[in-house]
Design a protein around this nucleic acid. Sequence first.
DNA 1: GAAAATGTTCAGCCCTTGTTCAGCTAGTAT
DNA 2: ATACTAGCTGAACAAGGGCTGAACATTTTC
Lengths: 225, 225
Amino acid sequence: MRLLLVEDDPALQHELQQQLVRQNYSVDVAADGEIALFQGLEYDYDIAVIDLGLPKMDGTTVVKKLREKGRNFPILILTARDRWQDKVAGLDAGADDYLTKPFHIEELSSRLNALIRRCAGKASSTINNGPFTLDTATSQVSVEQISVNLSAQEFKVFKYLMLHIGEVVSKTTLTEHIYDQDFDLDSNVIEVFIRRLRKKLDPDSKHNFIETKRGQGYRLIDFTA
Amino acid sequence: MRLLLVEDDPALQHELQQQLVRQNYSVDVAADGEIALFQGLEYDYDIAVIDLGLPKMDGTTVVKKLREKGRNFPILILTARDRWQDKVAGLDAGADDYLTKPFHIEELSSRLNALIRRCAGKASSTINNGPFTLDTATSQVSVEQISVNLSAQEFKVFKYLMLHIGEVVSKTTLTEHIYDQDFDLDSNVIEVFIRRLRKKLDPDSKHNFIETKRGQGYRLIDFTA
DNA sequence: GAAAATGTTCAGCCCTTGTTCAGCTAGTAT
DNA sequence: ATACTAGCTGAACAAGGGCTGAACATTTTC
């Protein structure tokens, strides 16, 4: 597993590198945004860990430029605790997950594992799950080869579920991932979107692809299992 | 999961409580150090979140005294950003992790999960016992590879038993771990839930996995032994 | 600027779930 | 043997979470 680590703080950089090497990653290190971008374009990494606060070029910009050039390996971004709002910009730029500093090394590695697993099947940026297909690049969704038109929000919800197949996802989690800042919690928007998704993607409810876990959330059934 | 939340700022206290309850913790709240200590000694919590800056008795002292009395549930301490130095004292006193305010609720819950997992000595988030499997992360339960749908309360009871395999667990203990504060004790809720668990998880009673110890409680059989 | 599509709110219904209860069974003590 | 107690069991019930269709609001499209 080839990993690109982008971190400017020498101490943290060193520690992370050691730990990651110990976990059998081949680690390349970059200490500023420009080097990071160059490296990221030059080599084909399996995964990248990028701190957002970087000299020369901001981490968000690095992510965005990498994605523009078609690099689609998973990216996990690191943000300082007092700047956690940046995560939204980072995720919008194309990062796949984030972690707030300081964190425990175990946390990082479990996130990395999850990311790799999650992104394993989407080399082509399309996720397949039984009759359902989602292309993250073109924002296309189809059921049994027939393309379905989803609105922006519907797509966000479905995408999140497709990226977390088999996991129980709470309504709060969904809300938080769909809206930037906090949102009126006693609203039933999510229920409505779920309803519309079920209607659009499975009108005859022959798949029952979204399970309801009362009091806990929703779960997209894993058809590959 | 029974959680003790110690926080004196009413607004933060309220918000945290809501969020934690939403994540299926049974939350008891204490607003000053003395109450916190009393509660911590009185009940058997699964985890505690303690702010260091408290009226009447300092958070560090609370942690120290709890540990002196042999309470060994994991403790996460909260420190204000401008007093982050205190965290060292807190960790020395016996806390297991810390978080600097302000923080994002997601961060807190992922820390709590990590703590619980780490302190339970379970590397993975799934617990196996003979034909029974419980995944604490996804709240999934299965018997002989077939997943079974448990309600929230049923799950809480089963989870507690699975975390205490082979131990005799009294009905009072179970009640205390499932509900906040006091609960009408001359009720047979637990019996009902046990009944439903036996029915759902072992319909033909071929495993007899929950033993009844008359006058003492229930015991989940250890199939690994 | 009008029409269409999308986002959000609302009210009523449905059904799971939590809880209680009453009658029953099986250990335990007298 | 008898009475007593703890636990078992099925059913009843109420409350709340989730579902749903439609209305209202907002944004996008033309």
